[in-house]
Structures are given as C-alpha cells and as structure tokens.
C-alpha cells in the first residue's frame, strides 16, 4: 500500500472533467473554441474571444518553454512540507497557452526561464493524474 497522498487535489466538475479524464489517459487536452479556434486553459462555457459555446478538446503536443519560475520556501500546504524548497513553473505550451506546473527530475538550480520542457503524467492517486513537465534540453 502506498502512503496516503497529502497534497491538495483538484476539484473536478462538469466543466473541467474532459481535462482531467484526458490526463488519466496520459493525454493533454485543452478547450478550444470550435468557432474561432482560440485555445484556452479555463473551461468556461463561452469562448472569451468570440462568445461561442461550441467547444472542442484537441490533444496538444505537451511541449513548451519555461516562461518563469519560483522556488517555494514558504510552506502553504502541509503536503508540500517535505519537499520545500520546491519549484513551480509557468510553462508556455508551443500552442500558446500558459499553465502552472512542476518540473520533475531536476534540481532547482537547473530550472530556468527559456528551458524546453515536455509533459509527463503523474498518477498521484487512482483517480487523479497531474500534468507535470521534465526538462528536455
């Protein structure tokens, strides 16, 4: 038996379910407006660019670049206490959307703006897979 997972878990709801179900299959999918083609992170009902409700969920490359990063020394969540100082990165996907995540398998000193990354999938519980990234250059 694995030790109970103690970090915060996502709140899965009817809007974001396609995102989380795709991650369980180790696929990165984000909402894209079927009318104007604008890709977004947040699963709002209406496209922020054109207002259309017509949404598709294409699979993305999972490749991107570190736009910025911070190293958390402060412990805001008990579940992260043992890992502090831990990294949080803001990744810009090659498709343009930005999202926050963690880099796995690297020292904090290696995690720098401009480094190329690719998606990896962390099955943290039987129900939840988190999108994380590893350095590729």
């Amino acid at each position: 038996m694995s030790v109970a997972y103690r970090k915060p878990l996502p709140v899965v709801d009817s809007r974001n379910r396609p995102y989380w179900e795709a991650l369980r299959r180790h696929e990165l999918r984000l909402p894209r407006c079927a009318a104007c083609g604008t890709l977004r992170f947040a699963p709002f009902r209406h496209c922020p660019a054109c207002g259309s409700e017509d949404t598709e969920w294409p699979q993305l490359s999972g490749r991107g670049t570190i736009w910025s990063r911070a190293i958390f020394h402060q412990v805001y969540f008990e579940g992260f206490r043992d890992e502090a100082p831990y990294n949080v990165v803001l990744v810009q996907l090659d498709e343009g959307v930005k999202l926050y995540s963690n880099i796995v398998g690297a020292d904090n000193a290696e995690i720098r703006i401009g480094r190329r990354v690719e998606a990896c999938f962390d099955d943290v519980t039987p129900e939840v897979t988190l999108l994380k990234f590893r350095l590729v250059d």
Binding site: K7, P8, S68, Y76, F80, V88, L90, Y100, S101
Partner: peptide, 28 residues
C-alpha cells in the same frame, strides 16, 4: 481570476509567488 485553487495541486499559491515569477522574468 480563475480561482487560485486550480493550481494548488502544484503548490502554486499567493500573490507573492505571482510577483516572484514576474520579477524572475524581469531579471531574465
């Protein structure tokens, strides 16, 4: 605006961290 809780699973939280990332970018 998206509600910070979306990013809690990654340990991302706080206005200070968002400003830290902005400053890191400025430094870069």
């Amino acid at each position: 605006g998206a509600g910070g809780s979306v990013w809690f699973p990654y340990g991302m939280t706080s206005p200070g961290a968002a400003h830290a990332m902005q400053f890191e970018r400025h430094a870069h």
